[in-house]
Design a protein around this nucleic acid. Structure first.
Lengths: 345, 345
DNA sequence: ACTTTTCACGCAAACGTTTGCCTGTTTTTT
DNA sequence: AAAAAACAGGCAAACGTTTGCGTGAAAAGT
């Protein structure tokens, strides 16, 4: 009851049976007599026996652990996603090993290596911004460790992933603004290197052209996502010959920076300039000059889907079967969400 | 290179030496000749050998894993804390196993049990709100698994913990408001059942009496931390015969609710009523009518300290030595932080 | 009553690594 | 040159569990 945990061996010795009998009795294996089963189970209960997961993992070569590698745990998007991941894996008796790359490729590589060595059964990865080589992911494939990427997907073929389609969100966002009467709409986009930037741009263009509006490339400006970069981007838009009356920004933070700057410049955020952004942080419902709408990316849903897929992959792997199945490509549609506060005013 | 990971055995067989020699060579054990060491290491490198962490854990009865149990991963405070925990344990070659109790005692108990069985080396726990029995923590002690509690500390003796002293933060907050000329200061507190509520109240009282102001208990109102509850609390303060010109709230969310309600009532948040709150969520720097100051609880620091303590405990345990040492009781002093935006206006 | 099945359980290997102890060879000491 | 010491490495047990295979005894079939 105290001290060291009870083992199957001890139970066996006390009951004068073999370890294999105890093991089987505990698993209700049909080949063990019912009386023995009961005796064993009773003693196990009494001793507070709990199987040593470590030994089992070692024996089976399976850890019932899935690794999660993300850039930054403290970011709202990722903590929400992980929260969902933890919940769905917990239900299936898996635990999660978490590590953050801090958007550093070097560390990401180390983490993948470490996760491999600690023999996680599978991996959920959202890749670092700076990652430019992908050999470490190939390595996982060689070792037959299933990986599901989410949100930040590497540009390689034959992978499982769940991501959010930013394009439709962009289209919705622009349509929303058009319907509100805006005709000159700016886009403060992220770095061109990010796939997410491309999708936003595509959506923007599609929405404009679908609505028979001429698309002006100079209304799209890139930005490094910092406060300073945002200010510059906003300035350039404000100087535009057709100064936009609405701006779509890469994410809520960019919106916040931009809004701050706009107010410093004395711009009327109710009449002269409106913002729509991405991510839908909980913040914006408590702000006065928040974006009028935001494109929700459903981190919780993405996390859950990714975990579901990985668990499915692991289940298939158990039943051995067909190596090369199809690849899961799940797209979560982003969705424009109006800011309740601002729109109830 | 492909398929299954290389093992020590394979290396031994290829080199015609024993496994023990390989093991020792890999650890640079002095009793192995230098030439053999080099041969072994070279082959290990070539084969891409990486030790099977699982086997090592099993063998040593040590997992190099620490479990973290928190109420809610998606809450900013906890994700920040965990981010720090992950970073500091990573440096010492530990990994973290994360699970959330969702503030549910039942689940917390299950998680503790599960963590024990998966043989984590130690545990970091922030207790669920509803937890009222503590037998599961005692159990850990019996099994000699070190635990460090952080932020939410159970009311039991002889534990290691790091927590934030809310009292000093409260005093600072009240002093700050007094110095700004406020004389009637309200407090929208949390449920009386929370220790944190008591500390805030104590701080409030101390600050008032230290400044020779009469302390009016009716200026302190409890609240269940919901939006609705906050409204009621605010209403009762506004109806007070000495209507407060400043209010300290239990946390930033309560402030947000209160501010929203106050504005709905047409109150001038610049002149007639000011707020100070706790937690210092990043949000408030982007709000117009944010609290003028917030008491920072340093989640990052708390997480780091807690992890440091646990690692220290584990290190001591390795060197066996003296069972019952002293208990770590680390108090992180909270600190009032002015809202830069609001105070620069 | 004798063979065949079924039943209930034990044996032992295996998973990969670490480590205390032993042994054979070389080097050093006197 | 013999004894002692240092060196380099091997043997085997141990960690806790699972599982294929073997086996004696009881039950069933003829």
């Amino acid at each position: 009851m105290t001290g060291k945990p009870a083992t199957i061996k001890e139970i066996a010795k006390i009951l004068n049976v073999s370890v294999s009998t105890v093991s089987r009795a505990l698993h209700k294996h049909p080949t063990i007599g019912i009386t023995t089963q009961i005796k064993v189970q009773a003693l196990a209960e009494k001793l507070g026996y709990e199987p040593n997961q470590n030994a089992i993992s070692f024996q089976k070569g399976k850890t019932y652990t899935i690794g999660v590698i993300i850039p930054e745990l403290a970011e709202a998007f990722f903590s929400a996603a992980i929260s969902a991941i933890e919940d769905t894996t917990y239900k299936r008796n898996y635990t999660v090993l978490i590590a953050q790359s801090h958007d550093n490729e070097e560390k990401e590589i180390q983490l993948v290596e470490k996760m491999k060595n600690s023999r996680v059964d599978g991996l959920l990865i959202s890749v670092a911004k700076t990652t430019s080589s992908f050999a470490h992911f190939d390595m996982l494939k060689r070792f037959n460790i299933p990986v599901v990427f989410f949100d930040r997907i590497p540009p390689i073929k034959n992978i499982h992933y769940v991501a959010c389609n930013m394009e439709t969100g962009s289209i919705e966002a622009v349509n929303y603004l058009l319907q509100k009467g805006h005709r000159s709409i700016g886009l403060i986009n992220g770095p061109a290197t990010l796939a997410a930037s491309g999708e936003r741009k595509e959506g923007y263009i599609k929405a404009m052209t679908k609505n028979r509006l001429k698309f002006d490339p100079s209304l799209i400006v890139g930005c490094n996502l910092t406060e300073e970069g945002t200010r510059e981007a906003l300035n350039s838009l404000l100087d535009h010959k057709r100064r936009p009356t609405a701006i779509v920004t890469f994410n809520d933070y960019v919106s916040l920076y931009a809004i701050k700057h706009a107010r410093d410049l004395g711009i009327d955020l109710d009449k002269d300039l409106q913002f729509v952004s991405y991510a839908n942080l909980p913040i914006i419902n408590y702000m006065d000059y928040a974006p009028v709408a935001s494109v929700e990316q459903f981190p919780h849903l993405q996390g859950q889907k990714a975990a579901d897929i990985l668990l499915d992959l692991l289940a298939r792997k158990d039943q051995s079967s067909d190596e090369v199945q199809a690849y899961y490509n799940v797209i979560v549609e982003s969705q424009l969400v109006e800011n309740k506060v601002r729109n109830s005013q």
